[in-house]
Design a protein around this nucleic acid. Structure first.
Lengths: 127, 127
DNA sequence: CTGGATCCCTATCGATACTG
DNA sequence: CAGTATCGATAGGGATCCAG
């Protein structure tokens, strides 16, 4: 076999191995089921537990609880407890979370253009 | 922690419910284990099965096979079979795949800046 | 070399029930 | 309202063997 690394310079990707690991790490947090939905909900104004639950279709209370802990541990979401009775808890995106969501927007745009499973090759769509 | 930025960090998110579902869909493909690593490898020049396997640390042949099918089904990767003996198979990013990877770059950049699990509150980093 | 088939273990998920 | 504990079902993933 030929070990020639004469790869055709096709895609202008500037991602290294270093970034690869980081990217994988981030993707495996955000890619978890419900994560992006929850982040989206919180990022767009849902603050209360039940509000988020209502907003993300199909999401159960348990999974919301679990994911909220995940996302909090990953410092993507902040949990603000107000010691009222009963307790009032609000969730917000952290600084990290905000930046993540912003970084996610190209993906959202991408997702909007190409439905997974639909049109294989688009002729000349786009805007 | 930070007490001053307790103001609502109104994020300029322009993602709708529509996009939410799409985004979730994309994230659940790309967020699967090894997916981003494989896409990264292919996107940066790895074409052969064994080359990809070598390039993504910890990746087993089986999972590569499985993911490759996933990614092919999602039209992110193209499989090119050359009927030599033995068969020679090459993988490339599809048009979709290329755009996905480009859309992923902000995430990669984000991932580079914020290590998951590390620095909770940054003093004056960022810019 | 490519990559499917099988076995099996573990993580994850969903539903339900329960607490502060 | 805001969660947690438990349990059973399932899917994800690794190792190995085998076939084209």
């Amino acid at each position: 076999m030929n070990t020639e690394e004469t790869n055709t310079p096709r895609v202008p990707l500037r991602i290294n191995d270093e970034e690869c690991r980081r990217l994988t790490g981030v993707m495996e947090i955000v890619g978890k089921r419900w994560s992006s939905g929850i982040l989206l909900a919180v990022g767009t104004g849902a603050e209360r537990f039940s509000e988020i639950e209502r907003r993300v279709e199909g999401l159960s209370g348990r999974m919301l609880s679990v994911r909220l802990r995940d996302l909090e541990a990953a410092d993507l979401i902040e949990r603000l407890v107000e010691p009222t009775i009963p307790v009032s808890v609000r969730y917000r995106l952290s600084q990290r979370g905000v930046e993540l969501m912003q970084s996610l927007q190209p993906i959202a745009r991408y997702a909007r253009r190409w439905e997974p499973g639909e049109d294989e090759d688009l002729p000349s769509r786009s805007a």
